[in-house]
């Protein structure tokens, strides 16, 4: 029986994929310089964490791993309602891969005394690997449930509906449990001006790998990204217009016949 739920949530300040542009000459994208935003599903994870607290009590701690700019994600978590924000950062943060991030998150969770429920996104918007949740659960030796669309909180564990390609599983797990969610689980609230202002003034606790007992070698990337390119698909980008919908439709059908794509 858990008295006061300790809820953790991971938030990534990742590349804004809708703004990432390739260099015209080379077709390559520079990830280092790309605009950033909080990973979409992480806002669902924070929303779920805050809803659980609102209903069942407890505390919500948001953790982000990355460069100093990742503070922005913690501010967003505060604005939604997180109680505490922790930034795990160091000079070489840009090189941290899934393995390093998972090790840092697992070590942070231990350092903070553990959680009953740890929420995160089922895939980050930029990397979309789906590895961090199961990796930290394995490192901590606890249960994890991914692709969760519905979460029910019980006194000593959760019941979760997991969405697989062809079936829905209903799973029961005892605390502590790591739960990865997608956008269908809820609609994150949009904080108002006051909530954002208050969030921007709140302190963020900063931890370095050394505080977690992790030497730089322990975080050396296991996977190296050589290059990232955006494949360009040439499109005609022709606008079809006319005085009436019927005229527009007629013109389009003629064009499609010319393309030979109608049966």
């Amino acid at each position: 029986m858990v008295e006061k739920l300790r809820i953790g949530v991971a938030v990534k300040y990742g590349v804004d994929v809708s703004l990432a542009r390739a260099d015209r000459a080379t077709g390559l994208v520079s990830l280092a310089g790309a605009p950033r935003k909080t990973s979409d599903f992480d806002l669902n994870a924070v929303e779920e964490a805050v809803r659980v607290r609102e209903k069942h009590g407890g505390t919500v701690t948001a953790i982000s791993v990355g460069g100093a700019e990742a503070k922005q994600s913690l501010r967003e978590a505060y604005a939604i309602g997180a109680d505490q924000g922790v930034l795990v950062t160091a000079a070489g943060a840009a090189a941290w891969d899934s393995r390093a991030v998972a090790r840092l998150l697992a070590a942070t969770i231990k350092k903070l005394g553990g959680f009953d429920l740890f929420l995160l996104g089922e895939g980050s918007t930029d990397h979309f690997a789906g590895l961090i949740g199961p990796r930290i659960a394995a490192e901590l030796g606890v249960a994890d449930i991914a692709y969760v669309r519905k979460l029910t909180i019980g006194p000593d564990g959760v019941v979760a509906e997991k969405d697989l390609e062809k079936e829905i599983e209903v799973l029961k797990a005892k605390y502590p449990v790591v739960v990865a969610v997608g956008q269908e689980i809820n609609t994150p609230r949009v904080p108002n001006f006051m909530a954002n202002l208050k969030a921007s003034k709140k302190d963020v606790q900063t931890l370095a790998p050394a505080d977690l007992g992790l030497a730089p070698e322990a975080l050396a990337p296991a996977v190296l990204i050589d290059r990232t390119a955006v494949p360009e698909v040439p499109r005609k980008r022709t606008t079809v217009s006319g005085a009436t919908p019927a005229e527009v439709a007629g013109k389009l059908v003629e064009a499609l016949k010319g393309e030979g794509v109608l049966a």
Binding site: R99, L131, P134, R135, A137, D144
Partner: peptide, 9 residues
């Protein structure tokens, strides 16, 4: 993906 993550971790 889950199996990959659990094994890797």
């Amino acid at each position: 993906r889950e199996v990959a993550g659990r094994l890797a971790g």
